[in-house]
């Protein structure tokens, strides 16, 4: 099994790659994890990961600037239904549109907009930065198997000012509370996206990555 981490110039791929390598090392299937900006290599991979930090528009432009990458993602994730994980802005790119600084089209895999978080308590700090718990909808999901969630569960590491407001509630697998309810994980068919950084979220994060490697959507 091979896992492609898509390199499109959007920040820190090192830690995502290391977390996947660590999870892969402990994994029976010992998958081959590689970071690449080559659309052909992404096309041949069994699983695809799209990380991303920074501003939405920059990330989208960066992705569009990689020759053939968006086409390959649409084909492999959309048509061929390969397991896909988006992380942070990589997750937000799954949305129809991003409204950070300017309105820009996303990959439009999951209907909804990425908009500024506005907690109902104005003294709360933005970015939403640090460790928070997540609330998972009742049906659960294979990528969260064996992981304690909810108020007394494990924590995830977040750092962001915008969040993915999904058009359909069923696309939202998990939320977090920050004087308001915001999207922590989106899930649809073979796609999963986390607003938090699994590669920085210790037990919850490595567990989620390990489950993603097992996931057969």
């Amino acid at each position: 099994m091979s896992v492609a981490i898509v390199d499109y110039g959007a920040g820190n791929l090192h830690s995502a790659a290391k977390a996947f390598e660590r999870a892969a090392r402990d994994h029976a299937k010992t998958p081959d994890v590689f970071v690449t900006s080559d659309a052909d290599r992404v096309a041949k991979a069994d699983r695809i990961v799209l990380p991303g930090v920074g501003a939405y528009a920059d990330c989208k432009r960066g992705l569009a600037a990689v020759d053939g990458m968006i086409e390959v993602l649409n084909e492999q994730v959309g048509k061929n239904a390969k397991p896909f994980l988006g992380i942070c802005v990589g997750m937000q790119l799954m949305a129809s549109r991003g409204l950070e600084f300017e309105t820009i089209e996303g990959l439009d895999w999951i209907a909804g907009d990425v908009t500024a978080m506005v907690p109902s308590e104005p003294e709360l700090k933005i970015p939403h930065m640090g460790w928070n718990t997540i609330q998972v909808r009742d049906s659960g999901h294979a990528v969260l198997k064996g992981l304690a969630t909810g108020d007394d569960g494990l924590h995830a590491y977040f750092v962001h000012s915008y969040h993915f407001a999904t058009a359909r509630e069923q696309d939202r697998l998990a939320t977090f509370d920050y004087a308001g309810t915001f999207t922590a994980i989106v899930a649809k068919d073979n796609m999963i996206g986390t607003q938090f950084h699994p590669e920085k979220s210790q037990r919850l994060g490595l567990g989620l990555i390990s489950n993603f490697l097992d996931w057969a959507p």
Binding site: S15, K18, A19, R22, Y157, V159, E199, K200, S201, Q202
Partner: peptide, 11 residues
């Protein structure tokens, strides 16, 4: 930093 990122999964 590089060796830390290989071993520590926190910010």
């Amino acid at each position: 930093v590089s060796r830390t990122a290989e071993a520590c999964f926190m910010p």
